[in-house]
């Protein structure tokens, strides 16, 4: 790794914006590869990248940094990334990194941010917690199933369907939403949970879910899904 070139790339980051020559940042990509076997160098690179997020560099430059932290980020980058979750322009790219950083601190930071966020930003964080299958988020997500913002309630349902633990299934079963769109999301999430429960050998719990969706009040394709699930339950007893 050539430190001079890397310095130049960090310098270029300060003025980088849409339309700029992307090759000026190429050393950053190269440094990611070059530091794979050098923990100290990787740590230094990460620290340096994370620090740029608190500076006045452009949205485009921060976009680039978040993409790099998606690849190399650790718990050390989480505070800088989490500070962007309330920024409408940067929240997505912060999640772009946070969603993929394996450190539990990344999920914890997003859980902690949930109460402070609303609207789209909250929806985004809910989605990322779902993708991470963050079981510790289940109580918070369950509480959002009857959020007055239907978009938030839908997102919580989808996230619980992604987590699909027994607790997630129980939370979905306990919700009594009337809004059609939210109900559709909870239905799908419940069916996902039922599949997971059945795969885990909890046939009775799965069957209870499927029976709930086999009723006359359900759309045809949901009844098909329920019937298919009932058959799967019967088949698993073999």
């Amino acid at each position: 790794m050539n430190l001079d070139t890397l310095d130049q790339a960090f310098e270029a980051l300060k003025t980088y914006d849409w339309g700029a020559d992307g090759s000026a940042l190429q050393p950053l990509d190269e440094a990611v590869v070059a530091t794979r076997a050098d923990a100290a160098a990787r740590q230094a690179l990460e620290k340096r990248l994370a620090e740029t997020l608190t500076t006045g560099i452009s949205r485009d430059a921060k976009d680039v940094v978040c993409r790099l932290l998606m690849v190399i980020g650790t718990a050390a980058s989480v505070p800088a990334l989490a500070s962007l979750l309330a920024d409408a322009e940067l929240a997505h790219m912060a999640r772009y990194a946070l969603e993929r950083i394996p450190a539990p601190e990344a999920a914890a930071a997003m859980r902690a941010a949930l109460p402070q966020l609303s609207g789209l930003l909250r929806v985004g964080v809910i989605g990322s917690l779902g993708v991470r299958r963050d079981v510790e988020s289940v109580p918070a997500l369950a509480a959002l199933l009857d959020d007055p913002d239907p978009a938030v309630a839908c997102a919580a349902a989808v996230a619980l369907g992604a987590i699909r633990t027994p607790d997630a299934a129980a939370a979905l079963a306990g919700s009594s939403v009337s809004h059609a769109e939210v109900r559709r999301a909870t239905t799908d999430a419940s069916l996902a949970c039922a599949e997971s429960l059945l795969a885990g050998g909890q046939r009775a719990e799965a069957l209870a879910i499927y029976r709930r969706f086999a009723g006359e009040d359900q759309p045809k394709h949901v009844k098909l899904a329920a019937t298919r699930g009932i058959l799967a339950c019967a088949g698993q007893s073999q």
Binding site: Y96, R100, L121, G127, S128
Partner: peptide, 18 residues
């Protein structure tokens, strides 16, 4: 392989989810 697993997916811009 935590490094490779980071590439399994990428965060979707709000409000989009799978």
């Amino acid at each position: 392989d935590a490094e490779a697993n980071r590439f399994l997916d990428r965060a979707r811009r709000e409000p989009w989810q799978l």
